[in-house]
Nucleic acid binder design. Sequence first.
DNA 1: CCCGTGTTCAACCAATCGGTTGGATACCGG
DNA 2: CCGGTATCCAACCGATTGGTTGAACACGGG
Lengths: 115, 115
Amino acid sequence: MPGADQLSRVFAALADPTRRHMVARLTLADATVNELAEPYDVSVQAVSKHLRVLEEAGLVSRRREAQRRPVHLEAEVFDLMTTWIERYRRRAEERYQRLDALLASLPGEEGGETK
Amino acid sequence: MPGADQLSRVFAALADPTRRHMVARLTLADATVNELAEPYDVSVQAVSKHLRVLEEAGLVSRRREAQRRPVHLEAEVFDLMTTWIERYRRRAEERYQRLDALLASLPGEEGGETK
DNA sequence: CCCGTGTTCAACCAATCGGTTGGATACCGG
DNA sequence: CCGGTATCCAACCGATTGGTTGAACACGGG
């Protein structure tokens, strides 16, 4: 969507299985729109639209090469997601550790809610 | 999307900044719908809808506790994403290494830049 | 028991999405 | 310059999204 931040765009782009599949294919080699369209039974224009979504998310770039416009994966954008995910995963794990410590320090049966 | 796979659901769920913010908050502590709704100027029903999206993605669960229904983060689902991401990031990196090796082995004039 | 608080369900709405078809546009080879 | 191939832009369509409001449901405490 228009004013969306890049992280939202990246997640949204990868929410579509067709686009994930294209990204997977592009880890092997750059490809043209027609090559990318071949495995699916949708129109080339639909694939072109998917590529625009991936491009606006910063996941791919296109260069001009004669009539062709090969698509190239920009894998660094993955870091944006992993940074976000790892940050909160770490926080969640720390929370579990605190909870475990609390439970371990409790003397007995059930007890006093300290909140 | 009804028939979507879980990976698509997780990516789609996190494509919304409000939902990402809720997930971030839930790494600190479980919370009720009303507590989660408080920071935003949308209706409680809208927040309830967001929670349903997160729940269908497997990112949160809800238990019943008197009248309240506290929401709990299920952080393991993050692994689904990191597995996917790391798999293709690795492939992309391997591809770069092959490309570098190829370039290094070329009898080239310019560019023997080994970095 | 029933009132109030917390949450969900249902209908509706505008905007967006993923797809289509049809018509530009860009570039190369003859 | 002209034709062909590759790609994009524009208009349209049905389904989904994120939001609204209003009513229903589920409990626990006086």
